[in-house]
Amino acid sequence: MIKQPAEWQLLLYIAGQTPKSIKALSNIKKYAEIHLEGKYSIEIIDLLESPQLAEGDQILAVPTLVRRFPEPIRKIIGDLSNEERVLVGLNIKPIK
């Protein structure tokens, strides 16, 4: 295994183009650019289009950001407006 994961796989579950989901998307893009430059991928899943995917990742709330890789799976719900908590949640930044 490589010491530092080469790639961060992030999934953002949304339900239509709501203000919250747009906000969440722009937030995560912003944080990822700063902290994970070049090492990440973000996939957006619109549950309105593919509702069957909600069960797999145990999605209840939207928007939900799921860190698929590296393991373990982490979930962050909400519009990701609190940068600190997002970074802690994604385990990018250790808790101070």
Binding site: A15, A61, R74, N82
Partner: peptide, 15 residues
């Protein structure tokens, strides 16, 4: 689960 900011349970509704 980590909560940051506004969200709703639309996911549950969709499921």
């Amino acid at each position: 689960i980590e909560e940051t900011g506004e969200y709703d349970l639309e996911g549950l509704f969709i499921r």
